[in-house]
Design a protein around this nucleic acid. Structure first.
Lengths: 332, 332
DNA sequence: CCTTAGGAGGGGACTGCTCTATCCAGTTGA
DNA sequence: TCAACTGGATAGAGCAGTCCCCTCCTAAGG
């Protein structure tokens, strides 16, 4: 089923059929109708592979993210999808599982389809990946993070600063014996940067983290409970627990409520991400919004503008995450 | 940057370069090394658009799902991704937002890339969509649901049966005044089928739903709280609440625990999906596993086998969801 | 020692399907 | 009558794969 079939069925040249289907060039209304009718009758679906090869235009935007298991990324994808909605650009997703070698592979695969642009999470990439991104000759937007040197454009928040601000709020509130719980992911650079920003800020006030723990796999809520229990058994005198994400934070919160602990009096809590989930918990966990959806839309707008040859405006966008003290952090 | 550039840089024909890069045909180790070296030095990324056009082989599997906002689908995607992992097939995702006209558009877009197979959620499609699927001439696997006539292959669970079994468990446990809460989505056929199976089963025992309510948008957990409160104000004598998904069910559970209601003595609760989240709640919500991950892997295996010309085995797979009574449904 | 078969290594020509660029014929209007 | 369009056709390009062919070397047979 090709242009030829449609052209034969409608009695005009392939050229004319192509023009009708792409709404380009001048074709009389009568011919147009004839062609469209034939195409519909035959169930013709244009072959974009041939089309893209001929025109060297591809309407795909490659989107590379670490994971789908964490709700953070689907939200970014929604933003991208919405930001691209009024263009004919189409996002295509690839998942790296936080592994650099996977990232390389996924990137290579994606580039082999000659997309019109790339949106990729993070600023840390292997040398081959950076080389591919730089050489591709298409707009590249690195998202989520702004602590580092972008290859091209960039939209995100500063995770160092996010960690710092939370640290400041905690110190200001008077907490001093602080425990940290996070995910066991050396390759999650954003979590690492938050942690660094956090500890560095505490250090300025002469405070050192009392305990820390990392987990891998399993239900985040359950892990949050277990880790919190274990940490408090090790250090019953902790007065604050900072979690690297809201899910384990929520688990910790549930555990402490079960135990009848006074929150935020005896122990304060904070997470990160601002997940919607928190709104329904008995006590609202302090957190920090990661601007996920907006990151998606802004990145998409930059890509769209660049691809369509318009002015993309600001190309290094640093969004400001809002801290939300919720009910689990005393106002300092 | 094309095969020609690599061929010129390495001093062999384009043909030989192509063979080296695809690991096909006999090429001496020396030549192979020379070519690979040149390709790497130039940062050559093969053009799959041209490759696919030439070979009429595309390694893409189109995956069409209603939404990314519900964790159900990312889990299915993980399954698909894992199921395809040992092949060179690559999933490509499209999202319909539960809208048939979006589905048509997404399907058309995807088919225009001539994928090797399609995995699509649900059995209900518009006539044009069905026509496209049937005419595409590639394996089609409809997933999530088995209540209906698949176009080709099919992997899922029976949502009617899921509703029925939950209804039976509730009746067996002795509950009689039952309320239902769900999402306001006429186009979520699976939720509808569960509801039908549920009410029909109750009817057999002479029970009619006492109240029902539907919501749209907003945080599911919060909505669950609000709807539960509202429904109990309307009907304080309800003794069971069935939620169409675990998130609103969890919200309801939180509300009732806050209120000090005896669960499951005074009021029983059940949700649907078996989301991981439930494991960390103070009380485990009764639910039913939707086999999300397995649906993904099975669908992927069928597609892979068909595409590779192997025996796909069973092509109409009905999985059996396990009911989990948790702590919120008296054992009947 | 020569012949010959066979295989390994590599090249040439053409193809896939659509789009771009260019060109032509017919029409319209001044 | 000629210029300016309009509707439509023809030719060629885009890049890598398939099919088929050729060359050269090795090894076995006579």
């Amino acid at each position: 089923m090709t242009l030829r079939d449609v052209s034969e069925a409608s009695g005009v040249s392939e050229m004319t059929v192509s023009r009708v289907l792409r709404d380009k060039g001048d074709v009389s209304a009568a011919t147009r109708a004839k062609v469209k009718d034939a195409a519909k009758r035959l169930g013709y679906v244009p072959n974009r592979i041939a089309g893209s090869l001929a025109s060297s235009h591809v309407n795909l935007i490659a989107v590379i993210i670490p994971s789908l298991k964490n709700m953070v990324f689907p939200e970014v994808l929604s933003g991208i999808s919405d930001g691209l909605d009024d263009t004919d650009l189409q996002p295509v997703f690839g998942v790296t599982e936080y592994r650099p070698e996977r990232e390389e592979k996924v990137l290579f695969e994606m580039l082999s389809w000659r997309p019109a642009g790339i949106i990729i999470a993070g600023l840390e990439h292997s040398d081959p990946s950076r080389a591919m991104l730089a050489q591709a000759g298409i707009p590249v937007v690195e998202i989520m993070d702004t602590d580092g040197d972008p290859i091209d454009a960039c939209v995100g928040i500063s995770h160092r600063r996010a960690g710092r601000e939370m640290g400041e709020a905690i110190v200001a509130a008077g907490y001093r014996r602080i425990g940290f719980m996070g995910t066991q992911m050396p390759l999650d650079h954003r979590a690492r940067k938050r942690f660094e920003g956090f500890t560095r800020t505490l250090a300025k006030s002469g405070i050192e983290i009392t305990d820390r723990d990392f987990y891998a796999g399993g239900s985040a809520l359950t892990k949050g409970r277990e880790m919190t229990q274990a940490m408090l058994e090790r250090h019953p005198d902790l007065d604050f627990l900072y979690y690297s994400n809201d899910m384990i934070g929520a688990g910790g919160l549930m555990y402490l409520l079960d135990q009848g602990v006074d929150i935020p009096g005896q122990i304060g809590l904070a997470g990160f991400n601002g997940v919607e989930l928190l709104d329904g918990l008995p006590r609202k966990l302090a957190t920090m919004d990661a601007c996920r959806y907006e990151i998606g839309t802004r990145a998409a707008r930059i890509i769209a503008a660049r691809v369509l040859g318009q002015d993309p405006g600001e190309e290094r966008v640093q969004l400001t995450p809002r801290i939300d003290l919720g009910d689990t952090l005393i106002r300092g």
